[in-house]
Every structure is written in structure tokens, then in C-alpha cells.
Amino acid sequence: MIQIEQLSKRYGAKLAVDNITFTVRPGLVTGFLGPNGAGKSTTMRLVVGLDSPTAGSVTVNGKQYARHRAPLHEVGALLDAKAVHSGRSAYNHLLAMAATHGIGKSRVREVIAMTGLEPVAKKRVAGFSLGMGQRLGIAAALLGDPATVILDEPVNGLDPEGVLWVRHLARQLAAEGRTIFLSSHLMSEMAQTADHLIVLGRGRIIADSPIAEILAAASTKAVRVRTPRAQDLARLVTRDGITVTSVEPDLLTIGGLTPTQVADAAARSSIALHELTPINASLEDAYLALTANDVEYRTEDTR
């Protein structure tokens, strides 16, 4: 359980996190979504006490992170794949982390096996691929068998098989009743993993709702129809579950029907259609719509 209340973080002139409040609950995978520079990583750093908040509070499992006597048993965090000394082997890195909590070698070998690092465990981290680095970061996060797991962009640099593995791991950990909080800047990734979604843009919360709701809102199908007999067509198709909105006198947006159904209905009444356009709001569209005004770095439209 992560509880964040009115949290702000300022770096110099830049307000990286702007008065955010939310709760990450156990038993679910909570996705933390936002464009690059939205403040996701900063928020996660604040959760584990690497940075101190300018205002507000963060607690994990009921306490400030630094007040836990055995923090690695409470929270496991992959904040950055490059949070490892590159001159040390994966095994020795995990061993050193484990030693702070009196965690034995058997557990170190266990997480190495869990993350598929056995073949490279004794090699120096300097030679690791991005994917191997991610696996090592995840191994470190799982070392203390924590009730709360925080993963910042865990699928970055992973091959398709690795992406699938992270997805399953997150689902499995949540099924065990743990709190899983993972960030991504990719909506498609979140759609396949998360139960709940928190969307961040320019340090502020844009959305905080179950993924099902966001999916439902995003996947609504609609058809745009242009016809001189707009009113007749509207009357014709209106029934339960169908929404008809009119933007211009001869333009309708009909929700809940396929283009075929609209065309057939129009043909039966000899209504001429001048335009028939299916509108498929994709997840990415929904995400882009949510964050349209909150993107930190934007490419200029080419004219």
C-alpha cells in the first residue's frame, strides 16, 4: 500500500511533482502512466525516500519509507536499471544488498534463478545488456520478498519474451496480494498489465481510475455520417444503447452502430449519405487525448 498526499517536489525552478494525491492498493497492478518528464520517476524516488518532498507526505505500508526497520522486506524498487556498480558481478551486487538485511545466500540464488540471470550471475555488470540490467534490478527488488513492489519502466530494453515475463510476474505478485506499482510511458503496455491506472502529466494527476473504465471510454465505437437528411436518419436509428449527437446540421456522430448498420438503415429509407466514417478511438488516442495538454517535450507539427 502506497499513500501519497498532496505531494510536491521542486527542483530549482522546476516543479516536477505538483500537489498529487493517490493511493496504490494491494492485490492490484497499478499502472503509472505519463509522457517522459511527467514526474513518474520523481514520484517513485520520493516514495523510497531518495529525494525528500518539498511538501506533502508519502507512506508505504503505513510508514515513511526511511522509518521501516527492514525496508527491503517492505518495499522492493527497481528505479533505474543502472543502480548497480558496473565493476561488480550480479551475484556480489545482490549479496551486498542482501547483507544489509541479513538475507542469506540461498535467497540471493533464488532471485537469480527467478529472473533467469544464472548464466551471467558471476559476470561483471559492465558487460550487461539493458535487458540483463533490468532483470538484475528486478532481482534486487524481489530480494526481500516485499509486500510492495515498485518498478520504474520495467520493460525498457527487454526482448518480447522478457516483456511477457514481466507482465506475468506483475500479475502473479498482485495475485499474491502484493501492491504492484509500475510505470510506463506506453499505454499499450499498461492495457495488458494493469488493473488500475494513474495518469500523470506535467506533475499533475490527469486520471486515476480502473483500467476497465478507461478501456471502455476509449474503445467506444462511433460512426460519423454526413447527410442532407440528418434529422430523418437520427430518428431512424435512435433506440436504446445508441447515441446520436449532432455537431453541424448535416453531420451526425452515431455511437453504438457499425458503419454497415448505419448504411443499411439509410438505404432502406433511401437516405443519401455523403460521408460515412468509422471513428475508432484507440487506447493510444485516449492516452494522447488525456495528456495532450501536458506533454513536456513536443515535436512541432510539420506543415
Binding site: 527492514a70 556498480h85 551486498a96 547483507a99 544489509t100 538485511h101 542469506g104
Partner: peptide, 22 residues
Amino acid sequence: QPRHAVTFRRTVASEWIKLRSL
């Protein structure tokens, strides 16, 4: 697994592992 708190002795043990593994 049995859970132990972070102590100074354990922190020293960790730092020793870090030093000897570089």
C-alpha cells in the same frame, strides 16, 4: 523468510562485500 532489521553490523558486512568484490 525470517526477517531481520538493518543494523550497523549488517551494514558493515555489506560494505565489506562491496569492497572485496571490486
